[in-house]
């Protein structure tokens, strides 16, 4: 009894995380954002369904095997959104987390509150990470349902020409969701670091997207091939390995580790900035 009264009572971490998540989800713009993300697989699926005329492939790469093979649609949609749309979504959550609070003047209160700044950053990062996972999982779910309705098919046809049973196909979709989410985390962590330096959320989004586009452009030049292994965007093409059978894991591990390095750098920079930030 006595110890409880003398030591400062810290809010349990679980409750703080839950409250952060509730804050994000309750915002109307989050709802509309997620809703528009759900439209992506539907639009992509309907578009290809209309284009499907029975002869010839629907397009290059994954699109070629989508006819009669609906469970490929969630994977296809996630890869379609990875280069630009999902980094934008990650940047929006990250911009809202710190720069948004600063813009509304609420960050000051949070910094003054008896909560460690690193802990505050951790909670914000958790919010961004959880929302990214929710967004990709939602897209995959809508994509799988849309694909099953429009294209049907038993199991999942891989690029290698083998057909995976339903359970394994769902496993591959889940793996794609995780792999794509980790890549978006890499971008969002850097966005969070930018977010700690400004109080304008638009600056965060513009800088992050500009960076992603710059990385994509740098990845095109052959003369810069020494730089390519360092660019997070350059490993995104190799994620198509998830649709090969047997699953080749080396490139998937490599791209995940690369994104992990970006997460570490981004969060460390954000922590550094948060610790030295003036009230």
């Amino acid at each position: 009894m006595t110890t409880a009264t003398t030591t400062a009572v810290r809010a349990p971490l679980g409750r703080q995380l839950r409250s952060e998540l509730r804050w994000i989800i309750r915002r109307p713009r989050t709802f509309f954002g997620l809703l528009s993300l759900c439209l992506v697989p539907i639009v992509a699926g309907v578009g290809m369904w209309v284009a499907m005329d029975g002869d010839g492939p629907l397009g290059p790469g994954l699109a070629a095997i989508i006819a009669g093979n609906g469970l490929v649609l969630p994977v296809f949609t996630l890869f379609l959104s990875l280069p630009l749309l999902l980094p934008l979504i990650g940047a929006i959550w990250a911009a809202d987390g710190i720069a948004g609070e600063a813009q509304h003047g609420t960050l000051r209160g949070l910094l003054l509150a008896p909560v460690g700044r690193v802990r505050l950053l951790a909670i914000k990062a958790f919010g961004v990470a959880a929302m990214t996972l929710i967004a990709t999982a939602l897209m995959a779910l809508v994509g799988a349902v849309t694909g099953a309705i429009l294209f049907g098919g038993q199991g999942m046809l891989t690029l290698s020409g083998t057909t995976l049973p339903f359970v394994e196909a769902v496993g591959r979709i889940a793996l794609t969701v995780l792999l794509v989410t980790v890549q978006v985390w890499g971008v969002a962590a850097v966005a969070l670091a930018i977010s700690t330096t400004t109080e304008h959320p638009l600056v965060v989004m513009a800088t992050t997207l500009g960076g992603v586009i710059l990385f994509n452009v740098l990845g095109v030049f052959e003369a810069l091939d020494w730089l390519h292994p360092y660019l997070i965007t350059s490993s995104w093409n190799s994620l198509a390995d998830v649709m090969r059978d047997p699953l080749p894991t080396d490139q998937l591990w490599r791209s995940t580790a690369l994104a992990g390095c970006y997460v570490l750098i981004g969060l460390s920079l954000a922590a550094m900035r948060m610790a030295t930030k003036d009230n």
């Binding site: 700044r117 360092y230 690369l258 460390s268 550094m272 610790a275």
Partner: peptide, 24 residues
Amino acid sequence: RRRVTVGVAAAGVVAGAAGLGVLA
């Protein structure tokens, strides 16, 4: 405490950059 945080975070940046180098 602030100095410790900055130190750890700086180490994190270095570790991340080193990780990129190893992967490349």
